[in-house]
């Protein structure tokens, strides 16, 4: 029983950064912008969050700074792709490379420094319950925030007028413009949200998941987040499911390594989440779930007249 509980307790924080980053990307893609720079924005968020927290001693400032820094990076991407109409794929890849390098540069002086982990929100009474207590009521605020945000995003997209307009921009930018909706502004805001969420995911990594800074510490989670959006067919509810599935997978491979189940090199186990990502993408493409793809995804839009 202890093993299982410990496993479940470990899954939740493993899933949280995936969920945060993927939520941001989901909103951006529903508005029609494919931002492949998630990995880079997460790294910048991670290093900024860490550096500001260490320097100021305030975790809240750290988290806020992480979101701001990644959003600024996203603003650059938005300017390139939405105003100058550069290719979204190329700009996104450049953003990842830029973010990775910038994070390494900023973080050079912080490698190996200690930081206080984000405090757990212990609920008096409830947290002391056996099994359920540590499983559900003893995580830090970002874990709960990620789930609240998933719910809020779902409501926003499907139940509000602003969400409807955002989806319209992603489905058919030309028609949305013809109906008088501000396509470019909507897309800017969506991309900025995506950046802030990637920053939040990064800050969670460097302040809670593994409270330290090391280069490339996101270890491909940004790419997994991108795949998750497709996996979830652009729906926030399924995204939660997918994030926890992948979180579980990444913890499972650690267990498998430790127990030495098979006489395989540890790298093989480390590969599994990424292999599954590829597998999922292949399966989804075979199933022709393409109709769920926002029809204007990745296309530049220039307002004429």
């Amino acid at each position: 029983m202890d093993q299982v509980t410990a496993f479940l307790i470990a899954v939740i924080p493993a899933a949280t950064p995936l969920l945060l980053a993927a939520l941001g990307e989901l909103v951006s893609e529903r508005a029609g912008v494919l931002n492949l720079g998630v990995e880079g924005m997460m790294l910048v968020g991670a290093v900024t969050g860490f550096a500001v927290t260490v320097t100021t001693g305030s975790a809240i400032s750290g988290v806020g700074a992480a979101m701001l820094a990644s959003a600024i990076l996203a603003l650059g991407f938005a300017f390139l792709t939405l105003t100058l109409m550069a290719n979204q794929v190329a700009s996104g890849l450049a953003l990842t490379i830029l973010g990775t390098g910038a994070a390494a540069l900023i973080g050079a002086g912080f490698v190996g420094m200690p930081v206080e982990r984000l405090p757990h929100l212990d609920v008096p009474g409830l947290s002391d319950l056996p099994v359920v207590g540590p499983l559900l009521f003893a995580h830090d605020a970002l874990v709960y925030l990620s789930l609240i945000l998933a719910l809020a995003t779902g409501l926003f997209l499907n139940r509000t007028r602003a969400g409807l307009i955002l989806r319209a921009c992603g489905e058919d930018a030309g028609s949305a413009h013809a109906l008088g909706h501000p396509v470019i502004l909507t897309r800017y805001l969506a991309v900025l949200f995506g950046g802030a969420m990637a920053g939040l995911a990064g800050a969670f990594l460097s302040l809670s998941y593994t409270p330290m800074w090391s280069e490339a510490m996101t270890a491909g989670r940004g790419w997994i987040a991108l795949a998750l959006v497709v996996f979830a067919s652009w729906r926030p509810g399924r995204l939660v499911l997918g994030a926890y599935l992948f979180g579980g997978l990444s913890i499972l491979q650690l267990y498998a390594q430790n127990m030495g189940i098979l006489a395989l090199p540890s790298q093989v186990f480390a590969m599994t989440p990424y292999l599954v990502t590829i597998l999922v993408l292949i399966l989804i493409s075979l199933r022709r779930a393409r109709s769920a793809t926002p029809a204007s995804l990745g296309q530049s839009f220039r307002a004429t007249q």
Partner: peptide
């Protein structure tokens, strides 16, 4: 037509309204 195929009739009409 300036219609959004994945959206419902209701959503399409709502997008074209001047007053929500």
């Amino acid at each position: 037509f300036s219609l959004f195929e994945p959206l419902t009739v209701l959503e399409n009409v709502a997008l074209g309204l001047d007053r929500p």
